[in-house]
Design a protein around this nucleic acid. Structure first.
Lengths: 205, 205
DNA sequence: GAGCTCATTGCGCACTTGTCCAACAGCCGG
DNA sequence: CCGGCTGTTGGACAAGTGCGCAATGAGCTC
């Protein structure tokens, strides 16, 4: 394979790893898979990463971090708290497809066995929660919504979303995505003392 | 190893598999691990199970089914709906230790790659939800609690519990168990129109 | 006590895993 | 034009994986 600058090559490895991970799952992604995906040798991966654990952590960070950036941008474009929340659910619904959520599922399960992956997963999870927490906090400050504990409210909303998504992804048939988002937006409205339907404009088709 | 009746041996394999799975995680449990745990040969496992997938599914069923039975019994001992709910949270708090929940995490993630495990996991998940759903339904019928859709309410409570537990188990430090149960019981009270504190007697120490 | 069934063995097979490393090749400074 | 740096190769490596199967022998039936 053609020679590449260290930065580019490192990025190419992460891209390839993510591509494979989205197809086979994080846990099932191997060094050789990544090498084959890029059309290079397997030894090259270890020239840039100390262990496979770190490759997977970087790939996961790429995917989850990207989604987080998109959602953050969409929320920043909105002026008021309710608008930001609506943007949150809208982007979450569009970007977080089933196969993307499977990545999170793998990351959570593998976290106990892969230190680098655990650190990354935890960091990104907290980032998602804080995105919601600050929005709620600001909304409370300007009086547009009510919450005795914005931090706790954010954890509850995120966790409900995760728990319900889990049902959709792990067992294909139990619930469906539309139901999940209906329930989560409605629960959020109750949690933050918003009028019924305040967030439902964002429910996906 | 001493000869054993087919039924006993099968059970012994499941027991051993579960023992290993609780120590290493479901996904990391191998045929040889199970054989070594029992002090027998690896070939024996394949004499009783067609594939490792089925061994893991049986082991998971053993653990999750047992917890389910305990909770079901505890709830049956209570007469009114609120009492049953209190029993639900009480047993969930005591039986579902961190290492047990890691089993669920593994099962959900592995479900996409192991058919037998997926079927088992789905079945048990629905069983847990129904346990709660029927209780809520009965509570609505006798007027002790309110819910426009008991089935949906059960899914929300279970999912919130799963989503929050996930944070405790996957990332050791983000939240703690006591917080999780406080939040879930409080959310349940709101969901079912119960007075504040109706369920808090069951919050673990 | 003979015969036979079948639980159990122990190893082999084919394959995969992450990691390592000697050798190679292309580019850059001299 | 040449020497060395370094990105890259490709295979070796040991340790694993699930699974299959011929051989064994304990315990049952007759």
């Amino acid at each position: 394979m053609a020679r590449m600058s260290p930065g580019d090559r490192r990025q190419a490895i992460v891209d390839a790893a993510l591509k494979v991970a989205l197809r086979k799952g994080l846990a099932a992604t191997t060094v050789r898979d990544v090498a084959t995906e890029m059309g290079t040798s397997s030894g090259l991966i270890h020239h840039y990463f100390d262990s496979m654990d770190e490759v997977l952590a970087a790939a996961f960070e790429q995917a989850a971090g990207n989604d987080l950036a998109i959602t953050t941008a969409a929320m920043a474009a909105e002026l008021v708290a309710v608008g930001k929340l609506r943007a949150f659910f809208r982007t979450y619904a569009s970007t977080d497809q089933d196969w993307a959520f499977q990545l999170w599922l793998d990351a959570w399960a593998e976290a106990s066995r892969r230190p680098a992956l655990r650190r990354t997963s935890q960091r990104l999870n907290v980032a998602w929660q804080q995105l919601l927490a600050t929005t709620i906090h600001n909304g409370v400050a300007d009086g547009s919504l009510e919450s005795p504990d914005p931090d706790a409210a954010a954890w509850r909303i995120i966790s409900l979303l995760d728990g319900l998504s889990l049902q959709v992804v792990a067992h294909r048939s139990t619930l469906d995505r539309a139901t999940v988002f209906n329930w989560v937006t409605r629960t959020t409205e109750v949690e933050l003392a918003l009028p019924t339907g305040a967030l439902t404009a964002s429910v996906p088709v």
